[in-house]
Design a protein around this nucleic acid. Sequence first.
DNA 1: GGCTTATGCGCAG
DNA 2: TGCGCCTAAGCCA
Length: 259
Amino acid sequence: MPEGHTVHRTANHFRKTFAAQTVEVTSPQGRFTDAAVISGTKLLKTRAIGKQLFLHFEPAVLRIHLGIYGKWQFSQFEELPEPRGLVRARFIAGNHLADLRGPTACELLDSEQLKLIQAKLGPDPLDPMADAEKFIAKVSRSRVTIGQLLMDQSVISGIGNVYRAELLFRAGINPHTPGSSLTREQVLGLWLDAVALMPLGVKTGLMLTREGHLKAKTKKADRYYVYKREGLPCRECEVNIAIELMATRKLYHCPSCQK
DNA sequence: GGCTTATGCGCAG
DNA sequence: TGCGCCTAAGCCA
């Protein structure tokens, strides 16, 4: 379920229920072989950058990336439940439990490795300290299409297939436009729109992108302008929403509103 | 119950 | 470009 907002929610949850505590870390499945290195140490700091979660324990930093399959399951228990299925990592502090399944990455980093990985990440619209100019500069210099640039985590962190489609529709920009063909106002506009929308995602856990429907009570069927609406009439102009593959990912857009 | 699909990404070639 | 990852929800029967 991971576009950036979900990972920030996870970071917030860890901060609330695990931070500053001694955490017991195990790998019931066995594949996270370094669990013992951090188990029994304190969670000092929790940070999400885009789709990556960094849990700073005393001996090392744990980097978690859910990829497409990864899932978290959080719960509180009176009696600790047996792990169900393949649990890569299990975190326990007090009566709080977090089970991690199927992640792409669950690995310990030293400070050098951490620096390298974080240096590769583009600015995150959910980070108040993020530098929009870095995003603008990379897009403006690139002949790659804006549809692909928005999915490139070294250009901007945290955008996935849903926000990509919706942001471009909201901006009235055709996904095939090369980054360098966009005006500075258009690129800044995309950034500012992400800055405006993504906190709603963190707050509600839903990707709310439709003007007038930016509330958690918005029904799933009404939630998006174009994402997964191929063949249906555009909500603004009635022309059918188009679908195609762009670099192996499904891309949705309105051929009329996004010229 | 089975089959399809998915909000991602690294890697081989 | 295509594969591997290998979970879980959604949909159909």
